[in-house]
């Protein structure tokens, strides 16, 4: 890596940092309970809950930090926080 002067950095390059490793609890989405409201995607601070083609939502576990906001906010209680490695 050569330094670009002006302390300039490229857009979106934090993607190199896989924050999924921070997680101790993992959100597990139950599509059977889901109403496809999208609230989980709105309030994910990492912006990593994505809408699938079938209209359901899933997180990108490479970056999900396991904060649990999505589970807490889901009106259908369709997301469970599960201890990692279980």
């Amino acid at each position: 890596m050569k330094l670009i002067i002006k302390t300039v950095t490229k857009p979106g390059s934090t993607r190199a940092n896989k924050t999924g490793a921070w997680r101790s609890f993992m959100p597990v989405f139950d599509h059977k309970l889901c109403s496809k409201c999208g609230i989980c995607a709105i309030y994910c601070p990492e912006g990593v809950v994505y809408k699938l083609e079938n209209g359901f939502f899933e997180p990108d576990y490479e970056y999900c930090k396991g904060c649990g906001i999505c589970a807490n906010e889901c009106p259908k209680k369709a997301i469970k926080m599960v201890l990692e490695g279980k």
């Binding site: 934090t14 924050t19 904060c67 649990g68």
Partner: peptide, 13 residues
Amino acid sequence: KPGHRGCAGCCDA
């Protein structure tokens, strides 16, 4: 974009 170092559940993010 993700990969930032905000606390899990960060309000600023």
